[in-house]
């Protein structure tokens, strides 16, 4: 009776999918000359997946809005760049230390979350993003200021990760690892506590869950994922600057989680892939196709398509960003009906 309880997770196709992820570059290489360009886009998506999976734990599962995740990514990227290039730590060590540092930052940012909620928390984390940007500029001896910082290539146990091809395998190995860990987290006591906090703080407390502790924990875990993504970002892009990590990126992360479906790890993965590929590949592709028929100023079409996506969101989410947050909080309560409304 107990056996096969995890059938619903459909574990069987996961190994197939993982093999497909590793075979993909070879397929791509045989299909197109410009495989490196496409790989790079997938690499961006891979790094972002690690981050959005963590963001989903915070915003999707725990119901705590964050508009500061670009800043967490920035802290991760800069910390690792400084640890490896200036202090001389090995890359492998930075992969462990940096996420912990960023996790601690998340922990600290989590303090306001104990008192404020929703959009206000969003605004607070957004403010945090601006502060981080200014701090990076202020510590210019370490960070190179606003001019940015060139970062060394990753060396992994003596093997240098040289190009997009190598990057792909490193990034996706870690992304798969991140997804597995995230799944484990949300399917454990921790994940249950997070969801209980999201859906009913009372039930959570009555079950013995310390709200403060677990909210902070959620921020810590989310920060760790972002920090991990930051390390990979820095050492695969080889250049970081404050212009990378603006508020728009934070909003995009939220959109990725939202598009994929809040509160589902696989949703975050799909949403991230969708948005990154859309932005960098499909829209330019459409653009090229369209320009044969109508004259478009370059850039116009992208604005149009993103406008359209946003419009669709606004139609289904008329309250915009606030609605996005609301949606996160009540999504599960109205799906497929709202028990509260029906029974009280």
């Amino acid at each position: 009776m107990i056996k096969g309880r995890y059938d619903d997770e459909n574990l069987k196709w996961i190994p197939v999918l993982i093999i497909a992820v590793y075979l993909f570059p070879f397929l791509l290489k045989s299909a197109t000359f410009s495989y490196k360009y496409y790989l790079y886009i997938f690499n961006i998506a891979g790094v972002y997946i690690i981050l959005t999976v963590g963001l989903d734990i915070l915003s999707g599962f725990t119901g705590l809005m964050s508009l500061g995740h670009a800043a967490f990514l920035a802290i991760g990227a800069y910390t690792s760049a400084i640890l490896v290039d200036q202090i001389g730590l090995p890359f492998e060590l930075s992969l462990i230390i940096t996420p912990i540092i960023v996790g601690i930052c998340g922990f600290v940012i989590g303090f306001p979350a104990l008192r404020i909620e929703g959009m206000y928390l969003g605004l607070t984390t957004m403010g945090f993003g601006f502060i981080v940007k200014r701090l990076i500029i202020a510590f210019r001896e370490w960070t190179g200021g606003a001019g940015g910082l060139h970062v060394s290539k990753a060396t992994f146990f003596g093997y240098t990760i040289r190009n997009d091809w190598d990057n792909y395998f490193m990034i996706y190995t870690f992304a798969i690892l991140a997804i597995i860990i995230a799944r484990r987290i949300v399917k454990s006591k921790l994940g249950r506590a997070f969801m209980a906090i999201r859906d009913s703080e009372q039930a959570a407390q009555a079950s013995g869950i310390n709200l403060a502790k677990y909210k902070m924990m959620s921020f810590f875990i989310s920060g760790m994922f972002a920090g991990f993504a930051g390390v990979l970002f820095a050492h695969t892009n080889h250049f970081i600057s404050t212009d990378h990590f603006d508020i728009l990126l934070s909003i995009f992360f939220i959109v990725m989680v939202l598009v994929g479906g809040v509160g589902s790890i696989y949703g975050a993965v799909l949403g991230t892939l969708f948005i990154v590929l859309m932005e960098n590949m499909f829209i330019p592709l459409f653009e090229d196709g369209m320009s044969q028929f109508v004259h478009l100023e370059a850039g116009e079409f992208q604005v149009f398509i993103f406008g359209l996506i946003m419009l669709l969101f606004i139609i289904f989410q008329p309250q915009g960003l606030y609605g996005m947050w609301l949606k996160m909080r009540i999504y599960w309560k109205i799906f497929p009906f709202n028990p509260k409304k029906r029974f009280t």
Binding site: R198, A203, A206, S207, W332, K340, F343
Partner: peptide, 12 residues
């Protein structure tokens, strides 16, 4: 431990 008058659980 306790239960609640209005359902307090995690739908998903």
């Amino acid at each position: 431990s306790r239960t609640f008058q209005n359902l307090q659980n995690v739908p998903y």
